[in-house]
Amino acid sequence: MPGTLIGWLAVLQEHQAAPATPFEVNFGLFFWTWVVFIALFLVLRRFAWPVILKNTEERERRIRHQLADAEKMNAEAKALLEEHRRMMASAKGQTHALLAEAKAVAEREREALLARARQEQEQILERAKREIAFERDRATMQLRREAVDLSLAAAAKLLEAKLDSEADRRLVTEFLESAEKGQ
């Protein structure tokens, strides 16, 4: 591009030593850039950033603080839960033991009650049997006596004879016994 080259040269001639193309490196500008940049950096760090970022940094600090708090509380809660669990486990064990004991006691009590009830029942049965036997014997005796009396009355009527009552009774009793034997 000869036109461009001539253009550069013309500009160079016009402004004697001024850099005429953007591709030239003027080392003096390093110095100025650093001066300006560092000055701006220091001034902003002193006067601008703290004010602008105050709220954000405070919020960040607060959040960090809250996070730490939350972590601590979480750890505490975990410890409490662990203790609670341990207590629950021990309580469960105790309950089991108590229940088992109560069951055993109840079982023993039941056994005893049953045994006593059975015993009483047998006693009652025994007594009843005895009474029945006694009543039966008595009834048999009474019946026999009445039968004798009836027989005697009947015999007296039949024979129309006056008989010695004691002798007759023996006679009839012997007859009845023989009749029983004969059966």
Binding site: M1, G3, T4, L5, I6, G7, W8, A10, V11, H15, A18, P19, A20, T21, P22, E24, N26, L29
Partner: peptide, 17 residues
């Protein structure tokens, strides 16, 4: 005008303002 010259002149640094 010489466009190349103008372009270079405008983008280059200078001792003027």
């Amino acid at each position: 005008p010489n466009i190349g010259e103008v372009v270079m002149h405008h983008t280059a640094d200078a001792y003027s303002f």
